[in-house]
Simulated scan of single mutants.
Amino acid sequence: MDMHNAFSQIVPPELVKTLRTAQRVTVLTGAGISAESGLPTFRDPMTGLWEKYRPEDLATPQAFRRNPRLVWEWYAWRRELVSQATPNAGHRALVTIEQHIPEFMLVTQNVDSLHQQAGSQRVIELHGNIRRTKCFDENVVVENREESEEVPPRCPRCGGMLRPDVVWFGESLPAQAFQTAVEAAVHADVFFAIGTSGTVEPAASLARVAQRFGATVVILNLDVKPLEAPPLYHINGRAGIVLPALVHAAWPE
Rank of each mutant, 00 (worst) to 15 (best):
N129S: 05
P152N: 03
E143W: 08
T86I: 05
I124H: 08
E125I: 07
V95Q: 00
E143T: 09
V95K: 02
Q121V: 14
A118P: 11
I101W: 11
L94S: 01
R78K: 11
L114W: 06
H187K: 15
V107R: 07
G195M: 04
A76Q: 14
T133E: 06
W168R: 00
V107D: 10
V111T: 10
A193F: 03
A185C: 07
G195Q: 11
L106R: 03
E125S: 11
F104M: 01
V182S: 07
G195S: 06
K134E: 09
I130R: 00
E171V: 10
E201V: 14
N129K: 00
C158K: 01
M161D: 12
L126E: 04
S120L: 14
V142L: 07
D189F: 12
E150T: 11
P87K: 08
A175Q: 09
P202F: 06
T108Y: 14
T199W: 13
R163P: 09
V186E: 11
R163Y: 05
V151I: 15
Q121L: 15
P164R: 01
P156D: 00
T86V: 10
T180M: 13
L106G: 08
A93K: 06
A89E: 13
H187L: 04
T133P: 07
L94M: 08
N110D: 11
C158H: 06
S197Q: 05
S113N: 10
P153I: 00
G160T: 06
L126G: 09
P87Q: 03
Q176F: 00
I97K: 02
V107C: 15
V111E: 00
E80F: 13
T86G: 01
H115Q: 07
N139C: 06
M161C: 08
T133C: 07
H115E: 07
E201C: 12
F169V: 02
G159E: 05
V200Y: 04
D137R: 09
T108W: 12
A193I: 12
R157Y: 03
H115T: 11
G160F: 15
A188F: 00
P102M: 11
N129F: 01
V182W: 12
Y75G: 08
